[in-house]
Computed example of a mutant assay.
Amino acid sequence: MGIVETRRGGGAILARPPDQIFPGQIIRRLEEGQALVDCLATGSERDCSLDGKCRLKFRLIAAEQAFYADLDKHSLASIAL
């Protein structure tokens, strides 16, 4: 991801300045392919008796987007110092 560089012999440092690293980027990458809930999974074969009637799934999608949007506003520098 270009966030951490390892050093020969051990150790690691940030690959970019902390004001250029955003937690939203990191969490998106770590959570890639993981749905917030089963019914949101791409290609999910789980049957849902509420499908077509459930309004919760759209609220969960909106909440997840708001979560990432907020994380994207703050750099590692702004939250670590």
Rank of each mutant, 00 (worst) to 15 (best):
A12I: 01
A69E: 15
P23H: 12
K57L: 15
R55E: 09
D38K: 04
I61F: 06
E5F: 03
A35Y: 11
I26M: 01
T42Q: 10
V4P: 05
R46L: 15
L56W: 09
I21E: 07
A77G: 00
V37Y: 02
R55P: 06
R59K: 13
A15Y: 11
L76R: 03
T6Y: 12
P18C: 03
G9N: 14
T6Q: 15
L40N: 10
V37G: 00
I13G: 06
L60Y: 08
L81F: 08
K73G: 02
G33I: 04
A35E: 12
T42G: 03
I79V: 15
L36K: 07
A69R: 15
L56R: 07
D38H: 02
T6R: 14
G33F: 03
D70S: 08
T42Y: 10
I13M: 08
Q25Y: 02
A63T: 06
F58H: 10
L56F: 15
G11Q: 09
G24D: 04
E45G: 13
A12C: 07
A80I: 14
R8N: 10
G2D: 14
D51V: 12
K53A: 13
P23A: 10
I79N: 08
S44K: 04
C48P: 07
M1R: 07
Q34R: 13
C48H: 09
Q34F: 06
G52N: 07
I79L: 15
Q34G: 00
L76P: 03
A77M: 05
L40V: 02
R59E: 12
A12E: 09
K57A: 08
F22K: 05
G10V: 14
K53G: 00
L36S: 08
S75G: 00
F67H: 10
D51S: 14
E64P: 01
A69W: 07
I13D: 12
I3D: 00
L60E: 12
L14N: 06
L30V: 02
K57M: 05
A77Q: 12
D72V: 01
V37L: 00
D19I: 04
R8Y: 09
G43F: 07
S44G: 13
G24E: 05
I79E: 08
F58V: 08
S75E: 00
K57W: 11
F58A: 13
A35D: 07
I26A: 00
L76N: 02
V4K: 14
A35S: 14
C48N: 10
C54N: 04
C54R: 08
I79C: 03
Y68P: 02
A41D: 12
I61G: 01
R46F: 05
L76H: 06
G43T: 09
A35L: 06
P18E: 08
L71Q: 02
D47K: 15
S44R: 14
R28F: 00
A69G: 15
Q25R: 11
I21F: 10
L56H: 05
F67K: 06
E32R: 12
L81G: 15
L30N: 02
K53P: 00
D38Q: 10
D47L: 13
T6S: 14
G43W: 06
K73T: 04
S78W: 10
A15S: 14
Q20G: 01
L60S: 09
S49R: 05
A66D: 10
P18I: 03
P17L: 11
Q20D: 13
G52S: 06
D38I: 02
